[in-house]
Write a protein that binds this DNA or RNA. Structure first.
Length: 604
DNA sequence: CTAGGGTTAG
């Protein structure tokens, strides 16, 4: 019989075969063997953490080496808290801990802090920081504080908590400072924006390596300063995958998705092998561009390489499919994921919501609650749910979710939540209620809310509230072309032509320029429209578009349409040459498949 | 065994 070589497994299937063999041969209680199985399943990108977890639970869970392996595995996932749970169990069960344990558990803390930061949970952030200090105390008690790996991890935790002072104290007292220590210390200063100290450190380092330069690169990327980042990237003495990943994520951050894809291609030419992180960034770019083909190709190649589609990676794929409108494929990947982070549920709910499957989005929320585990809904979950309600006019459900998030989940609604709520109310005709809500909420001076209400007033022909919202907008953020158009539409529908004319004159007097465009184009195609100018062709397209629109909005009042033309016609011509209408028109006319969320013109 | 790069928002 073939004896499987545990150190040379190439996928989870082979692992299962090996495992069957081991059981059959009666070695299932053999600690070194089971350790190898767990190590492979949990640490290899081809393994499966849930599988490791199942194996782990079948042991007596009292072996330090195995516990360490599990902690290490979890410390690098979307569920770093699970590592802390295993650590707590170890303490409870009196399992011996060693310097490895502390190294890994501290790294889990550092990551957990990072995760809570992403989620804006200052509460959780605080608690985990305290857990870090608790572990530190234990380290001192047991005398592991002289181990330089443990010291480095302590630096990580304190730098994550923003306690640079503490980090520096540990750093100063370290007898062995490796390049790792210097780099962590430097990124700690970067994190609290103390760039001077970071630079001093970089200058005085005994030797720099790729990581040092990557740390500097990450600083500029976090500041969205792509020019400086690019300069560092080009001039750094050594470059590795992480440098590439950083610069790619920089392009994604500033929404230059094409730039990111170009870099991804030139990376191949330099013979740099893409990593999971590369794919995550690139999949994000595909999602925003609606570039389904590229995204699918990446997914296929990952499957071919037997990558485990979990955590961040699974999330990115689900989100890519959902944004591209391939909800079936998204669901398929989603269902195959064994450990779903909240973000993944959110991506799925959001995908269903924006593509009109609102009831299914709400059902998803129910199954999210039903599934045992620790995925609690967060602020984004509720944004997604409210969007779903808004699309279908589910008033009662919307109100229910809005109060549920406060009472049950203790999430304070932010501007976005109010935005969704106002959208829901005013879109479905509850204008007075929306008005009261804006007036009484903490964001009553935010123009977006008033603009949403104004849109609702136009839809439901409510002149008084429309005028009131417009007055508010003129006060808060004067000179917005779209606001004039909306109010003028309201007047036009009531055939109040004098008011329309008055508004148009006012607009010209204030020098407000009508910028036609979609709700997405400026964000989505930041670079692309720059080269486009107003040519005869674009005007031709534009007028074709107007006619097309006129014909397609059969139910709408022609008067409103006529006013739009009127507005556009008079105030569009003197626009600067770089306007993006041409691009929008082309997009709309050709129903460009690259654009998943359909481009809506404000005049439609 | 270590640092640097990564997710969701009308």
């Amino acid at each position: 019989m073939m004896i499987p070589k545990l150190h040379r497994l190439s996928c989870i299937k082979e692992l299962e075969q090996a495992q069957a063999f081991i059981v059959k041969a009666g070695f299932y209680n053999h600690i070194p063997i089971i350790t190898k199985l767990i190590a492979f399943s949990s640490l290899s990108p081809l393994g499966s953490l849930p599988h490791a977890c199942a194996l782990f639970q079948e042991t007596s869970m009292d072996d330090s080496f195995i516990c360490n392996t599990m902690i290490r595995a979890y410390s690098n996932t979307v569920f770093p808290l699970k590592a802390l749970l295993i650590y707590n169990r170890m303490q409870r069960m009196d399992v011996d801990s060693d310097h490895f344990t502390y190294n890994f558990v501290l790294r889990a803390c550092a990551r957990a802090i990072k995760c809570t930061e992403m989620d804006d949970q200052c509460f959780g952030h605080h608690i985990i920081s305290r857990k870090g200090s608790e572990i530190h105390a234990r380290i001192l008690k047991l005398g592991f504080d002289q181990d330089h790996h443990v010291q480095n991890s302590l630096l990580l935790v304190y730098s994550g908590s923003g306690l640079v002072g503490f980090a520096r104290l540990i750093f100063n007292e370290m007898t062995v400072k490796t390049a790792v220590s210097w780099n962590i210390m430097m990124s700690a200063y970067n994190r609290v924006h103390d760039y001077k100290s970071a630079d001093v450190l970089l200058e005085s380092m005994p030797q720099t390596n790729a990581v040092s330069w990557n740390t500097l690169l990450a600083r500029y990327i976090r500041l969205n300063n792509l020019v400086a980042a690019r300069k560092v990237f080009e001039e750094m003495p050594e470059r590795d995958v992480v440098s590439w990943n950083s610069i790619i994520s920089g392009y994604v951050n500033v929404k230059d998705y094409k730039g990111a894809l170009d870099l991804f291609h030139s990376m191949k030419q330099w013979n740099i092998r893409a990593t999971e992180v590369t794919f995550i960034s690139i999949l994000g770019a595909c999602a925003e561009l609606g570039a389904l083909e590229i995204g699918k190709k990446i997914h296929d190649s990952l499957k071919e390489k037997h990558y485990r589609i979990e955590g961040y990676l699974g999330n990115a794929i689900v989100d890519m499919y959902a944004k591209c409108g391939e909800l079936g494929l998204a669901l398929e990947v989603f269902n195959e994921m064994e450990m779903k982070p909240v973000s993944c549920w959110n991506a799925m709910i959001m995908g269903l919501a924006v593509h009109g499957h609102c009831e299914r989005a709400l059902e998803m929320f129910d199954s999210m609650k039903a599934e045992d585990g620790d995925h609690k809904p967060n602020r984004i979950t509720f944004i997604a749910l409210l969007i779903a309600c808004s699309h279908k006019g589910l008033l009662a459900e919307g109100r229910h979710f809005f109060s549920l998030m406060v009472t049950k989940y203790k999430i304070m609604p932010d501007l976005k939540h109010y935005g969704c709520m106002i959208d829901l109310l005013s879109r479905w005709g509850f204008l007075e209620e929306a008005y009261v809500m804006i007036k009484t909420c903490p964001f009553s001076s935010c123009s977006v809310l008033w603009r949403t209400l104004l849109g609702g007033c136009r839809l439901h022909r409510h002149v008084e509230l429309g005028e009131e919202s417009f007055r508010k907008l003129a006060e808060l953020e004067p000179g917005k072309d779209g606001d004039y158009v909306l109010l003028s539409n309201i007047y036009a529908e009531e055939e109040r032509w004098d008011d329309v004319e008055r508004l148009r004159k006012e607009m010209i007097n204030y020098g407000v320029c009508k910028k036609a465009g979609s709700s997405h184009n400026s964000r989505r195609h930041g670079e692309e429209e720059k080269g486009l100018r107003w040519t005869l062709k674009s005007w031709a397209l534009f007028s074709k578009f107007l006619i097309y629109n006129f014909q397609s909005v059969r139910g709408a009042q022609p008067t409103a349409f006529v006013t739009n033309c009127f507005f556009m016609g008079f105030s569009c011509f003197p626009l600067e040459p770089n306007t993006n209408i041409a691009f929008v028109c082309q997009n709309h006319m050709e129903m460009n498949p690259i654009c998943p969320k359909s481009v809506k013109l404000s005049l439609a």
